[in-house]
Design a protein around this nucleic acid. Structure first.
Lengths: 227, 227
DNA sequence: AGGTTTTATGTATATTAGACGTAAAATAAT
DNA sequence: ATTATTTTACGTCTAATATACATAAAACCT
């Protein structure tokens, strides 16, 4: 008779002011009580995996995410959980943190965004899971338009630029970047807006998902390189 | 108390003469006895996931694969297994079928390669898993040099061409394809060999993994497009 | 009014992708 | 044995794309 437990964990990234954040909770119960860990927990017998992550995320952080991507299943290390054999199916989520009201809910002592270069030490093997999530994010940014999930619905081009610079860690030419993105044709130009501070006013843009899907159907292939 | 079982399944592709093959077994026991399914089975309590797939593959088909890639974890459909809640961690493997001696081993009635466009109907949700594997294979062929796992150690360029034509389903220019691949610099030219049948004798080539890894370290990025 | 900052747009050049031409080395046909 | 046919090998020209770089416009600051 098999005795293996199945858990789900969420690697949720947020972006704000040139910084990437990871969503963490302080655990209330169990062997890692008072440690920071990724949101997550055991799957219920009659619950699809993807519903389980969403539920845990809601219960522990009050964050609602309509869509998360399956990231990786961690099950090679027999002792990754001190309580016994547990495999974890990890999911990757992206949000603009301004859209969400964070609060430690029923199942957690605290919930907080940490800048990824100033993380607390994480319990279990969750640093490994985080690393895998970051790696995936950095890969995906090149071939899927996921950046828009991390920005506000309406954004200035320089904000998008900053996001890509932050995630890739590379400097690139603003003008060529803008030209490239606009050439895709899935951004709507919302016209000029005053910005706080100095400089010429800038145009805001919005990602048109329908247009993107239409392009995909025509064989379009999103791709960005940052030499 | 959670009651979920954990299984592993293997999507193993082989290539021969312009055809892609899928490795299947005829199940001996259980609700799917006498059905064709993917090799796989329940994970043992003290067994890493990756060891479990390799073990099942060996026990059921006599196939030894040193490396398999995690593909996807199937756990959203509560009733994917009629015996109860089972989630399956699927792995993707690639081999040159000529290198392996196939035989139904202890745990299977039969083991066989099927051309992917002439598959028997598969038990459980294994057609779904196969589809996911095929999709991943077709994606990977564009950005990782996985083709060489499916070819013999030493191969003619036209064989590689046929493989890429088969997997992508597209015609492309032989001359430009060859030029592109050779420009990468990870193939060793083994000189000219007589071929059976007509035509000018051709050079054999070999994939130099060390050279490829060296290139990766220098920032090289494998990429092929088939417009 | 002149300097600074940020945005908007354009152009010239280098690099790469794609289309295509032809010769060489083997077998097959007459 | 000479000529076609098949397959490979190698090269060239052109179009498309990426990269580097120039300049003007619109705001704020002094």
């Amino acid at each position: 008779m098999q005795d293996i437990k199945v858990a789900v964990d969420a690697v949720v990234f947020g972006y704000k002011e040139e910084t990437l954040f990871l969503l963490c909770i302080k655990q209330k119960f169990g062997p890692m009580a008072d440690s920071w860990v990724l949101p997550g927990g055991l799957v219920q017998d009659d619950e699809p995996l993807k519903d389980a992550v969403k539920r845990e995320l809601r219960e522990e952080t009050n964050v609602e995410l309509e869509y998360m991507d399956q990231l990786y299943t961690f099950g090679d290390d027999i002792k990754r959980d001190p309580r016994g054999r547990v495999i974890a199916v990890a999911y990757l989520g992206l949000v603009d943190p301004k859209r969400l009201e964070l609060k430690a809910d029923t199942d957690a002592l605290d919930a907080q965004w940490f800048p990824i270069d100033a993380l607390p030490s994480l319990g279990y093997d969750h640093e490994l899971i985080f690393e895998k999530g970051l790696e995936r994010l950095r890969a995906k940014i090149h071939y899927e338009p996921i950046g828009f999930d991390l920005l506000e619905e309406e954004f200035f081009f320089s904000e998008m630029e900053g996001l890509y610079r932050t995630i890739t860690g590379r400097a690139f030419d603003r003008r060529n970047f803008r030209k490239k993105i606009l050439s895709f044709g899935f951004l709507e130009d919302l016209g000029t807006f005053r910005r706080e501070g100095m400089g010429r006013p800038a145009n805001k843009f919005r990602f048109i998902e329908d247009k993107y899907n239409e392009l995909l159907a025509e064989g379009f292939h999103f791709e960005l390189k940052f030499a």
